[in-house]
Design a binder for these strands. Structure first.
Length: 412
RNA sequence: GUGGUCGUAGUUCAAUGGUAGAGCCCCGGCUUGUGAUGCCGGUUGUUGGGGGUUCGAAUCCCCUCGACCACCCCA
């Protein structure tokens, strides 16, 4: 056969039953915890107009400038596979006319697409669970949102993580801080690495979280945003910290948390694990008060976060995919219809049943064994004529004959 | 996008220029109404793909695809 090997495209992986079992566990925890905070699920498009991401994420960002799957469709429309969820959520919020409908609390789950070089925990198609809250401005809500993220991780049993928070300021205080930082950096430009020199032009705050040790030692007394917040931002940050303390949420202040996406302001946070190498950020988010307006709506405060489903799943122990409750072994052509009917009846009573398909007893028992069932229902001509079935316990090897209507009771 | 490690049977791995192998899995038999355990027998590969060097390549070289690692960036 000259068939060329077909495989999924780079960085786009299959979710097989073992993976999906974990994903469902994560999604169930999200639903449980987010519902307690009165968040509702929304389902948003995977495909959006390119314009949406250019205007929200920012044309200069890596995501927009080189990582989007972008194409023109047959009608000539410029479209993108969404690289993240917030922009689409804001678009939906505006499109539905909800700006006067009070606070909106949404969550969603689904694939995002970024054409990056893949690694473990970093895929070209990956899943995020995202949370967005529109129409609330205060630090109280920020603290509650962070507590919700914490509660979610605890629901999953993940406590080997740390939460780091920062404030990114706002259009009032950030420009002045930015200038101060840039002049600080320029004085030391020749001692900073090449990428930091590029970052100085493009996104100076990025220099602060450079991984190069020599840069970090050069930056020990670099000005920090939280020391230069305007009065309103300072009150907000103080309120956030007080709220987290009231809710017993463990956190560390990390003045070097930065955001690549243009729309963030004030509260920024990350939840990080040390167990996933360089891809340790498992949840990240923050406030984006300017985005709704930037996309054409009325000024509307908003905050949200996103988590990487695959990354979370990697932190979870293997989930064993549950096998069927029972297998049916039908012996002889004469019992074919009778065995099918029994299988159907047992399914309608809530048992999960596999039918071993007839043929030799050996083949069918082998199949039943492989399915990992605890019980096999043997249906032969003898049993059928007597109005009974044989139930075999696959662990003990014991068999007993009984009436069909007591099977369910016998296996529980 | 840059740099690096790796890729051999379904799977886990051997074979360092000289006939591609083992364990597990799988299939058949011992047992045509009984699996898992035991015994006997059997199949399994364009060595990721393509090209080159060589009498001869899994092994050396080049290209390419993929996984992984670091950077960039980010969930």
């Amino acid at each position: 056969m000259g068939i060329k090997k077909l495989q999924s495209i780079r960085g786009i992986h299959d979710g097989l039953p073992g993976d999906v079992a974990k994903w469902q566990k994560v999604e169930a925890a999200a639903k449980t915890v987010f519902s307690r905070y009165a968040f509702s699920e929304v389902r948003l498009p995977l495909l959006e107009p390119t314009e949406l991401f250019v205007r929200s994420i920012g044309e200069e960002t890596d995501i927009v400038s080189k990582e989007m799957y972008r194409f023109e469709d047959q009608g000539g429309d410029d479209l993108c596979l969404r690289p993240e969820g917030t922009a689409g959520a804001v678009r939906a919020y505006l499109q539905a006319g909800l700006t006067r409908a009070g606070a909106q609390r949404w969550y969603y789950t689904g694939p995002m697409f970024r054409r990056e070089r893949p690694q473990k925990g970093r895929l070209r198609q990956f899943q995020q669970i995202g949370v967005e809250m529109f129409g609330v401005a205060g630090p109280i809500e920020d603290a509650e949102l962070l507590a919700m993220a914490r509660d979610f991780l605890l629901e999953l049993g993940l406590d080997q993580v740390r939460m780091e928070i920062n404030s990114l300021g706002c259009p009032t205080c950030r420009p002045a801080y930015r200038d101060r930082l840039v002049s600080y950096l320029k004085e030391r430009a020749n001692k900073l690495c090449e990428t930091c020199n590029e970052r100085m032009e493009k996104n100076p705050m990025r220099v602060l979280d450079c991984k190069v040790a020599s840069c970090q030692s050069e930056l020990t007394d670099a000005p920090e945003m939280i020391a230069h917040l305007c009065a309103d931002c300072d009150v907000h940050f103080t309120g956030l910290k007080a709220g987290l303390e009231a809710l017993s949420v463990d956190y560390q202040i990390n003045p070097r948390i930065v955001r690549g996406l243009d729309y963030y302001n004030r509260t920024a946070f990350e939840i990080i694990t040390d167990q996933l190498g360089a891809q340790g950020t498992v949840i990240a988010g923050g406030r984006y008060d300017a985005l709704v307006e930037a996309l054409g709506g009325p000024a509307t405060p908003a905050i949200g976060f996103a988590m990487g489903l695959e990354r979370l799943a990697m932190l979870l122990p293997e989930v064993n995919v549950s096998g069927p409750d029972m297998a049916i072994v039908a012996l002889g052509d004469a019992v074919e219809g009778h065995a099918l009917m029994l299988a159907s009846q047992l399914r309608s009573k809530g048992l999960s049943i596999v039918h071993c398909g007839g043929g030799s007893a050996k083949r069918q028992f082998k199949m039943a064994d492989r399915e990992g069932v605890r019980f096999v229902l043997v249906v032969g001509e003898d049993e059928m004529n007597a109005g009974l079935v044989t139930l075999k316990n696959m662990q003990t090897g014991e068999q007993q004959q009984l009436a069909p209507d007591v099977i369910v009771a016998a296996v529980l």
